[in-house]
């Protein structure tokens, strides 16, 4: 699954570590999410979208 996390994170000046702390996961999980190598739970997808001030559809490309 493709994501726009990296792009949106850069737009909000967030590091992977900061985003990880915001949504309560390990930094590695953010790395895998950005690379599209991990399918998150709906809850995590929602939290990431909220942290990036976007909609889930804008963050995750289905």
């Amino acid at each position: 699954m493709k994501t726009r996390i990296k792009e949106l994170r850069a737009r909000h000046n967030l590091t992977q570590e900061e985003l990880a702390r915001k949504v309560g996961v390990r930094r590695e999980t953010i790395v895998f999410l950005e690379q599209g190598k991990y399918n998150p739970s709906l809850q995590l997808a929602h939290d990431v979208a909220v942290a990036l001030k976007s909609k889930i559809d804008d963050v995750f490309v289905f």
């Binding site: 996961v25 390990r26 999980t29 739970s41």
Partner: peptide
């Protein structure tokens, strides 16, 4: 240090 050791992926 406030590190998250366990999350849904782990």
């Amino acid at each position: 240090r406030g590190e998250v050791l366990v999350d849904e992926r782990t």
